[in-house]
């Protein structure tokens, strides 16, 4: 029973990591890609960690997996925040379909929305 749960958890994790990677390729600009990279990959890695924990139980390996999962949950948003902020300040262009950019408006800078049809 538990090993079946572990397998399901591992597979859910792998599928979400795959979707995250697909999102990195398909989405048009840095900021949208960051969304795919943070959300899907977080759940994917959490699923894999949970699967490892379920398979190995309460031994050094399983506990390390759980601690790693908590660490990832706390640090992934921070690093994505730092990357997105850095890109905005460095003036990396937003996708041409972007509707609104209040950050640059508030700073009084030139619009960094990509031009196009």
């Amino acid at each position: 029973m538990i090993s079946a749960l572990a397998l399901i958890s591992l597979w859910v994790g792998v599928v979400f990591v795959l979707l995250g990677a697909l999102g990195l390729v398909r989405f048009p600009d840095v900021y949208n890609r960051m969304q795919a990279a943070t959300k899907c990959v977080t759940l994917g890695v959490l699923g894999i960690m949970l699967g490892v924990f379920l398979r190995s139980g309460f031994n050094p390996l399983g506990i390390k997996a759980i601690i790693g999962a908590v660490f990832i949950l706390l640090t992934v948003p921070v690093s994505s925040h730092a990357l997105a902020r850095g890109s905005l300040i460095a003036g990396v262009k937003l996708w041409k379909g972007t509707v609104k950019d209040q950050f640059t408006e508030d700073r009084g800078g030139k619009s960094i929305i990509e031009e196009g049809k």
């Binding site: 979707l19 989405f27 048009p28 959300k39 977080t42 905005l88 379909g97």
Partner: peptide, 19 residues
């Protein structure tokens, strides 16, 4: 996660981003 996964898989991407 499900929301972003569906967006990734939908052919038109359904994007209307903004800050």
């Amino acid at each position: 996660n499900v929301d972003v996964a569906l967006r990734v898989l939908s052919p038109g991407l359904n994007l209307k981003p903004g800050i």
